[in-house]
Design a protein around this nucleic acid. Structure first.
Lengths: 120, 120
DNA sequence: TTAGGTACTATAAATATTGTAAGTAATGAG
DNA sequence: CTCATTACTTACAATATTTATAGTACCTAA
């Protein structure tokens, strides 16, 4: 994440695609390894950092942080810090984040039937 | 593409996610840089390799080939070779490929409204 | 004074994906 | 024989994403 090279061909290709095709644009935003699963969990209610971590076996704290930051940047989730010790931080979906629900549903439907097809 | 390391953490993470979440599974399949755009074009009719290339400014032949192969492996598109010279190869979506239409539509809808929100 | 919980950050390394540049096969047209 | 056309393939280089590991700050409770 972090460092992207704005002079790379890859960067300008992505830019051009995003510009023309909203579906490619969307895919760039929610296409990260853990992104959809995080959103999926948050769609059913706000969660703390540690709670999310438990829901995602295998994720590292760094990855979780990165993905959450990216989601926050894209205004898909909001972050609330409580001034307590030990710290408490809660994440929840915004309105546009909530709107991902139908996307996720369609992906699930399609994924399920694709799995079935391939499994035959 | 080509070489994935089946012993990597990344690989097993993806596997585990795909296994549990159909939306992550779907995302793994259609998450490539050009995948959705290619599908999008093919949804409106079969196209030849060269035609696709023209529709996708910036794609290299290598990338186009790789993406088409992956789509074919995943049975999203089918490939027909005509025994002519110069060669003619046509690609078209399969049934499960056609079912991506609603996914793409939702992504477009969401992408468009997200763009709008961010643009404000 | 020391340990412990929570939500991180820093740095480096490993993997994965994408891009560059060049070449191939087959055959018909000239 | 040579060239053009089409749909690739190959070898390698650059970039992007993900993982590994080890910290940090803060206060509280023992």
């Amino acid at each position: 994440m972090s460092e992207i090279k704005q002079s790379s061909t890859n960067f300008s290709n992505k830019l051009a695609l995003s510009d023309e095709c909203s579906e490619a644009y969307a895919s760039n935003i929610i296409g990260g390894q853990w992104t959809l699963v995080i959103c999926s969990w948050l769609l059913s209610g706000k969660l703390r950092f540690g709670e999310l971590k438990k829901k995602l076996p295998g994720i590292t704290e760094r990855m979780l942080t990165l993905q959450l930051r990216k989601l926050e940047e894209n205004r898909i989730i909001s972050r609330t810090v409580y001034a307590e010790v030990p710290p408490r931080v809660e994440y929840e979906v915004t309105e546009i984040g909530y709107a991902l629900k139908s996307v996720i549903t369609e992906l699930e439907v399609w994924g399920t039937s694709h799995k079935k097809l391939i499994g035959e």
